[in-house]
Structure formats: structure tokens, C-alpha cells
Amino acid sequence: MKIKWYFFLFTIMVLSIITFPFISNKDQKPLKIGIIMIGDSRYEKLIGLKKGMKELGYDDWSTEFLVKSGRDQEATLASQIEDLLNEKPALIVALGGIETLKLKEIMEKQNIQIPVVFAGVAAPKEIGLIKDYRSPGGLFTGINNYHTSLSGKRLEIFRDLVPSISRFHILYDEDIEVSKLSLENVKAAAERLSLEIIPWNVSDSKNFLSEMKHKIHLNDAILVMPGFKMELLSKEIAQFSKEYHVPVMGLYENEIEDGILASYGTSYFDQGYQSARFVSSIIQGNSPADIPVEMPDNIRFIVNQKVKSELGISLNKDIIHLAEFINPNAEGMSQ
């Protein structure tokens, strides 16, 4: 009897192929995590998120980040969101308020059910992202960066930091809900602190800084409210501050780097890092509806020593115990 060797080998191969799925490891494909950001300014959050994921035990092989950026354009953001949704990620991390709201709008429109973690949104309950902080009750959960509620506190800290300030110009965006809410908080705080404030709606005027320069007096200061447009104008505001010797307080560390005096808020990196906890909890089977929204783990008060020197102002010695300084070796530094 002649044995057909090729038939023999073919049989072995077929058997191996049939049985391979049973003995090979289960699906090891990395989990797809969608990232949506309005622009590269949010990149720091993505770095924080990746670091947080790594520290929670997720290596590069277990997760795959599908990063979509709106390149600072709202229109582009929408198309990027749609692209991202088409890729059907397991969950999406929205790196800011505008991204989260846009994502919610598109998901509701397309009736898509994907868990979403917002890595820093001011007043999520107030803007309708969640029902309740302890039980969000929908597809969204994440970090309330507290920037709305913190606006009054920022006014107080700004006052304490530069006691010589007599009047505060408040930059806000009438088109942004959180910005408006923040202004309301500031107004309430100003009333309690007996401070004078002048609101400036940056959405009304394309060149509000040129208008403002005519209204700036000695011992005036600028307090920036949360809002995407304000974030984009960070450098112009810093330039204005330098030019007109007006101390400015913002929210983020990057604004300090752009040249404003101080910021009080949670950093992009910290928000990204903290949002890793939400991502991990969802990966492990929790529903975003059950995961309470968290406040920032860390609120940073940062002071730019160089700007302070340039402005030639004196700072309150008590409050600087809470502050972190950048450019500490700048001329005239004293603590």
C-alpha cells in the first residue's frame, strides 16, 4: 500500500488549523481607547492618561489609543469625532468640555452607546452631561475640573496674592455655558469679598484686548474664566499683561508658561492622569453610570516669578505658602 505523503501532511495541517483556536491564547487584541481633543494644547492630558494607565498596570500591548484632534477647529472636531465613532472604540476619553459636549451631541444624534470618560469638564452636571455626581446615570463620567466652582476661590486667591489690586477684569465667553456659570460664581464671590469686577465677553468682540487697553487702570487685574477661546488667546493675554503691566490669573500651567502671573486650577496632565482611573474601572466592567464623577486630585497654584518681577508688584507672603513658582531665579524674586 502506498501512503500519499502529501495527503498525510494535509490532514495534519487541517487538524492543526481546526484545533489551534482551542489551544492558542484567547484574544489578545489590544483594547481600543478613543481619544478626542480639540487641539494639541490638550496633548498634556493624553500624556497624563497614558502615564496613569501604565501605573494602573496597563502596558502598551493591552491598550491602543485612537487619537483624534480637532486642530483647534470646532468643525474639524465634529468630523474627527465621527471618524472616531466609526472605528468603534471600546470607550472614548474626551480631553475637555467642548470635546465632551460635541461628542455627546453626535452620539445622541447617531444613537451610539459608547462609554465616555471626560478628562476635565467644568460643571458637568450643570451643563447636562451627568444626572448626579455620585451616580452619573448615563454614558458619561469623569473629572469635574471644578473650574466653574473654583472661579470664586480664584478671585479670592488672586486678591490675596496681589493685595494691591483694586479692580478685576473678568474674561469669559458668553457662548460657553461653563464660562457663564463661572462668571456667576465670580460675581457671587466678588460680592461676598466686596471686590469690583468688570466682565468681558470674549465672544462678542473679536478684538476685545484692544478695547480693554483703554479701560485698564492702575491696580487693575485680569481674571480668566474657563473657556476654549480664552485658552486659545492665552499668549495674547500674556502679551497684554506684559505690555500694560496688568497681573493676570488663569487656570492652567501652560498659561503661566505663556507669560501670565498666576494660575489656580488643575493641570492638564493631572486631569489626564486622574482620568486613567475611570478608564480602568470601565475596562474592568463598570458602567459609567455607576462611577461617581470626581473632583481634581490636585489643584495647583502656580506663580510666575519672572512675570511678577516684570510687573513690579508685591505678593502676599502668606498665600505664597500655597504657591508653586516657575522661573524662581528671575530678577527681584523674593518670598
Binding site: 498596570g57 496597563y58 486622574q274 482611573r277 475611570f278 474601572s281 474592568q284 462611577i291 473632583m295 486630585d297
Partner: peptide
């Protein structure tokens, strides 16, 4: 604030 402690316990990856 306990959220950090709680979050750390809740989100720790378990293989």
C-alpha cells in the same frame, strides 16, 4: 478628600 484613595482601590487593574 478620599476620592484618590477610593479611585486607586477601585481602578487598580486586576488581571
Amino acid at each position: 478628600q478620599l476620592q484618590k484613595i477610593i479611585g486607586q482601590i477601585s481602578s487598580l487593574k486586576q488581571d
